Deep mutational scan, measured.
Amino acid sequence: AEKTGIVNVSSSLNVREGASTSSKVIGSLSGNTKVTIVGEEGAFYKIEYKGSHSYVAKEYIKDIKDE
C-alpha cells in the first residue's frame, strides 16, 4: 500500500539512488514537498521521484499517511 509523507527540512533533502548515505545523490526535495512512499529499506523510504524510484532518509519525512 502506498503512503504519502511531507519533507520536513528547512532547506533541502537529498534524494539518493540507493538506501544508503553513501549512495549517489540524484536530486533534492525542498521542505513541505509531498512525497509518495512505495516502500522502506532500513533507515530510508523508497519514494516515487521523476518517474522512477529513489530513496530519502526516514528521519526527514513527517505526517505519514496511508493513501
Score class of each variant (00 low, 15 high):
1 A>P: 13
1 A>S: 13
1 A>H: 14
1 A>D: 09
2 E>Q: 15
2 E>L: 15
2 E>S: 15
3 K>D: 03
3 K>Q: 07
3 K>E: 04
3 K>M: 11
3 K>W: 15
3 K>F: 10
3 K>A: 06
3 K>C: 12
4 T>F: 13
4 T>Q: 09
4 T>M: 09
5 G>K: 04
5 G>T: 04
5 G>Y: 05
5 G>S: 03
5 G>A: 05
6 I>D: 02
6 I>F: 09
6 I>N: 04
7 V>E: 01
7 V>N: 02
8 N>H: 11
8 N>Q: 11
8 N>F: 09
8 N>I: 13
8 N>P: 04
9 V>W: 06
9 V>C: 15
9 V>P: 08
9 V>I: 11
9 V>R: 08
10 S>C: 15
10 S>V: 13
11 S>Q: 11
11 S>P: 10
11 S>I: 12
12 S>Y: 11
12 S>N: 10
12 S>C: 15
12 S>D: 08
12 S>E: 10
12 S>G: 13
12 S>W: 11
12 S>H: 13
12 S>T: 12
13 L>N: 03
13 L>M: 07
14 N>T: 11
14 N>Y: 09
14 N>G: 08
14 N>S: 14
15 V>A: 03
15 V>H: 02
16 R>L: 15
16 R>K: 06
16 R>P: 01
16 R>A: 03
16 R>D: 01
16 R>H: 15
16 R>E: 01
17 E>M: 09
17 E>A: 12
17 E>N: 09
17 E>S: 10
17 E>C: 09
18 G>N: 10
18 G>C: 13
18 G>P: 01
18 G>S: 13
18 G>M: 11
19 A>E: 01
19 A>I: 05
19 A>F: 05
19 A>H: 04
19 A>V: 05
19 A>Y: 04
20 S>C: 08
20 S>L: 06
20 S>F: 07
20 S>V: 04
20 S>Q: 06
21 T>M: 15
21 T>R: 12
21 T>W: 13
21 T>Y: 14
21 T>A: 13
22 S>P: 02
22 S>A: 11
22 S>F: 07
22 S>Q: 11
22 S>R: 11
22 S>N: 12
22 S>C: 12
23 S>V: 02
23 S>L: 02
23 S>K: 03
23 S>T: 06
24 K>H: 06
24 K>T: 07
24 K>R: 13
24 K>G: 06
24 K>S: 07
25 V>C: 07
25 V>I: 14
25 V>K: 05
25 V>L: 06
26 I>H: 03
26 I>S: 04
26 I>Q: 04
26 I>C: 07
26 I>A: 04
26 I>Y: 02
27 G>C: 05
27 G>T: 02
27 G>R: 01
27 G>H: 02
27 G>F: 03
27 G>Y: 02
28 S>Y: 13
28 S>A: 11
28 S>F: 13
28 S>G: 06
28 S>L: 12
28 S>C: 14
28 S>R: 13
29 L>I: 10
29 L>D: 00
29 L>S: 00
29 L>T: 02
29 L>V: 08
29 L>A: 01
29 L>F: 03
29 L>C: 04
30 S>P: 15
30 S>W: 10
30 S>M: 14
31 G>M: 12
31 G>H: 15
31 G>E: 09
31 G>V: 11
32 N>C: 14
32 N>P: 05
32 N>Y: 11
33 T>A: 10
33 T>K: 06
33 T>D: 09
33 T>S: 10
33 T>L: 06
33 T>I: 08
33 T>N: 05
33 T>W: 06
34 K>V: 13
34 K>A: 07
34 K>P: 07
34 K>S: 07
34 K>F: 09
34 K>Q: 10
34 K>T: 09
34 K>Y: 09
35 V>E: 00
35 V>L: 05
35 V>P: 01
35 V>A: 01
36 T>L: 11
36 T>G: 04
37 I>T: 00
37 I>V: 05
37 I>P: 00
37 I>N: 00
37 I>R: 00
37 I>E: 00
37 I>M: 02
38 V>W: 06
38 V>K: 05
38 V>S: 04
38 V>D: 01
38 V>G: 01
39 G>W: 03
39 G>S: 06
39 G>R: 02
39 G>T: 03
39 G>V: 01
39 G>C: 06
39 G>N: 04
39 G>Q: 03
39 G>P: 00
40 E>Y: 05
40 E>S: 07
40 E>K: 04
40 E>W: 06
40 E>I: 07
40 E>G: 03
41 E>K: 07
41 E>G: 03
41 E>L: 08
41 E>A: 07
42 G>D: 07
42 G>Q: 04
42 G>Y: 04
42 G>I: 02
43 A>P: 13
43 A>S: 10
43 A>M: 11
43 A>K: 09
43 A>R: 08
44 F>Q: 01
44 F>K: 00
44 F>R: 00
44 F>A: 02
45 Y>N: 01
45 Y>V: 05
45 Y>M: 03
45 Y>Q: 01
45 Y>I: 04
46 K>F: 05
46 K>W: 05
46 K>R: 09
46 K>S: 04
47 I>N: 01
47 I>L: 02
47 I>W: 00
47 I>Y: 00
47 I>C: 03
48 E>M: 14
48 E>H: 08
48 E>F: 11
49 Y>D: 02
49 Y>A: 00
49 Y>I: 03
49 Y>G: 00
49 Y>P: 00
49 Y>N: 01
49 Y>W: 11
50 K>D: 10
50 K>Q: 13
50 K>H: 10
50 K>P: 02
51 G>S: 06
51 G>M: 05
51 G>I: 02
51 G>F: 05
51 G>D: 07
52 S>M: 13
52 S>F: 10
52 S>H: 10
53 H>A: 06
53 H>V: 13
54 S>W: 09
54 S>N: 07
54 S>Y: 15
55 Y>Q: 00
55 Y>L: 01
55 Y>N: 00
55 Y>M: 01
55 Y>G: 00
55 Y>K: 00
56 V>Y: 00
56 V>S: 00
56 V>P: 00
56 V>T: 01
56 V>C: 03
56 V>E: 00
56 V>W: 00
56 V>R: 00
57 A>F: 09
57 A>I: 08
57 A>R: 10
57 A>S: 10
57 A>T: 06
58 K>L: 03
58 K>V: 04
58 K>H: 02
58 K>W: 02
59 E>H: 08
59 E>C: 10
59 E>T: 07
60 Y>L: 07
60 Y>H: 11
60 Y>A: 09
61 I>S: 01
61 I>W: 03
62 K>P: 02
62 K>N: 10
62 K>G: 11
62 K>S: 14
62 K>R: 11
62 K>Y: 10
62 K>V: 14
63 D>R: 10
63 D>A: 11
63 D>I: 15
63 D>E: 14
63 D>H: 10
63 D>L: 15
64 I>Q: 06
64 I>T: 07
64 I>H: 07
64 I>S: 07
65 K>C: 11
65 K>F: 10
65 K>M: 11
65 K>D: 11
65 K>P: 09
65 K>N: 12
66 D>C: 14
66 D>Q: 13
66 D>Y: 14
67 E>N: 13
67 E>D: 12
67 E>I: 14
